[in-house]
């Protein structure tokens, strides 16, 4: 008997190639991309005493699988080194790794894992889970993805509430000290992985 559904075919093919052990979750034709860090930015916009400032994470890595024609097999898996936060202010940057903020010693990484990607009117949306300080919440990231040869540009932004993730505790949870809303800005240049 031959089961001809695409998934079954794929499974048989993978088994035939002896790759079954590597296949966790849906693996398909989605292209694997690597981030060109020099031309990429994982940043955020936040407020302090009502004034806006910008920051970024200097160090992050990700498994990025994306194909516009195979969203089902597309997937983002991002790991961010919280200690690499940089906001252009030495006073702020020395406070952010502390217990009340990212608590870098205990929670060195934040993660974002999105398994569900869908097309929207303006581009795409990634439905995923953001985890900071072991607090996990669903976060839907709208983004655009433009491919140019073997390069791609990804631009997206989403507003999150930092206090839901326990970032800025105690006195720092006061919104007049630092606003609760933080706009995360994803601005990546990627190249097709070999």
């Amino acid at each position: 008997m031959i089961d001809a559904t695409p998934n079954a075919l794929r499974r048989r093919l993978l088994m035939a190639l002896g790759l079954a052990g590597l296949a966790s979750g849906p693996v398909g034709a989605a292209t694997e991309w690597s981030i060109l860090h020099d031309d990429s930015r994982l940043g955020f916009e936040a407020t302090q005493q009502g004034g806006e400032f910008e920051g970024r994470f200097e160090s992050f890595s990700a498994d990025m699988r994306f194909s516009a024609d195979d969203l089902a097999a597309s997937r983002f898996d991002v790991r961010i080194d919280t200690g690499s936060v940089e906001t252009g202010s030495s006073q702020r940057d020395s406070a952010l790794p502390n217990d009340d903020w990212f608590n870098v010693d205990v929670f060195p990484q934040a993660t974002y894992v999105a398994d569900t990607l869908r097309a929207t009117d303006n581009g795409y949306a990634a439905e995923g889970t953001l985890t900071i300080r072991n607090n996990s919440h669903p976060v839907t990231l709208p983004f655009t993805w433009e491919v140019d040869g073997d390069r791609a540009r990804m631009d997206g932004a989403v507003v999150i509430d930092r206090t839901r993730f326990g970032v800025g505790q105690g006195d720092w949870s006061d919104p007049s000290v630092a606003g609760h809303e933080v706009r995360v800005v994803v601005d990546l240049t990627l190249s097709k992985a070999e």
Partner: peptide, 13 residues
């Protein structure tokens, strides 16, 4: 020099 934003009475930066 601290690169802190300055919002005057919450009205404008």
């Amino acid at each position: 020099a601290a690169n802190f934003p300055l919002n005057v009475f919450g009205l404008f930066q």
